[in-house]
Nucleic acid binder design. Sequence first.
DNA 1: ATCCATGTGTAGCTTTGGCTACAGATTCCG
DNA 2: CGGAATCTGTAGCCAAAGCTACACATGGAT
Lengths: 220, 220
Amino acid sequence: MTDITALEPFRRLSETSHRLLAGGTVTHRFDAGRTIIEKGQDVSGAYFVLEGRLRVFSLLPGGKEATLYFIEPGETCVLALNSLFNDLLYPAWVQTDSDTRVAVIPGRVYRALFATEPDIQDLTVQTLSTLVFRLMAELDQVHGQTLEQRLAGLLLVRASGRGVVRLTQQEMASHIGTTREVVARLIGRLSARGLIQSGRGAVTLHDRHALSVLAGGQDG
Amino acid sequence: MTDITALEPFRRLSETSHRLLAGGTVTHRFDAGRTIIEKGQDVSGAYFVLEGRLRVFSLLPGGKEATLYFIEPGETCVLALNSLFNDLLYPAWVQTDSDTRVAVIPGRVYRALFATEPDIQDLTVQTLSTLVFRLMAELDQVHGQTLEQRLAGLLLVRASGRGVVRLTQQEMASHIGTTREVVARLIGRLSARGLIQSGRGAVTLHDRHALSVLAGGQDG
DNA sequence: ATCCATGTGTAGCTTTGGCTACAGATTCCG
DNA sequence: CGGAATCTGTAGCCAAAGCTACACATGGAT
């Protein structure tokens, strides 16, 4: 995936729109771990991830982080869209999770496309809707689940096929919005119960079923 | 405000769209305190509040509630829109807060309007965006604020001009997602510090400034 | 006048989670 | 090989918040 025009929603654009898009879009590449948008920043365009992954998170008092969601290749950063349409300031932080290429469509170009292209209208609504659901789910979790449950969920979601989760305790803590020590404690408990096995920079799952029951049974 | 066609976004519709809207829309009236949408329900249309107020909340383990936001006259329930466009199940509960009249536009009608009417497209995006920001703000709060801060915020937001908040402790608890006892304890503390005065079914604010500092200074 | 429903005020106990402070382990690099 | 950086494992303490259990107050209804 090398060009924004290769992305599904941009395939069926009219000739004019296509030229507008091609002329206005800028592609950036960022190294892993770079902060590319900060809270309160004035966002200038719609961001589409071409390669790599972006992590959107909010910053809690005391410097803790909590991951809200990821933006994968082919997806767009809705918060940016959002800021775009409302002239609001961006309400969170965005970092690259790995080396990432991003296409930025300037605000006025995107708005023009939105006005005339049904596919862009659908894409926009679709993307916003998806975000709303992700946020609702996240909110439910934060509200109602213990950290142990949230950790179990995280491990299940981030496990490779063979049940290995390549995250440090500090990273896990960031994702679920707590501190390293608490994660260590939780991992110690899960490990004592035989559900997982801890190692440097990674955790191995031994009983996914029990974990998913623990997490609240969203997953098989 | 008696008819949906009186609402701003529906004013400039084409003749065809107007007929479609008028023909397809159904108006309901609900008494205060009725649950009109439950979580997991399949939502059939776009809800617009004509009179009264709807409260959208999520249900936490143990039967606690947490208010996400309100829908005022002229506004629409975005979650419903959302479910509509994604064929997803509604992710929260909706109750009437007072006696309320609601116009329901069936899904297929709304989708048809969205496809052809710029005003509806804008309205949809605008509404979704607003919701995203409300949810982000709520998430930040839940994540990072103590219940005392959240209570202070609630009191400030819900106070009448003369500084009276007409809510029972149970209702306050529902709004901020905790239990009655905890609210009583918090009120006791605030009251001991002279910031408020408690009474049956109401609280009187004595020092808004101190409260807003406490809440984190979002408000004057 | 009494009773009942609703609302408020307290107290004590427990769990969860945050903070501090280390000690050991592993990896990387020079 | 040795040291620095990074990561993990524990322990203890404390505050926040949830749960249980009452006692008391208020207001409306009969």
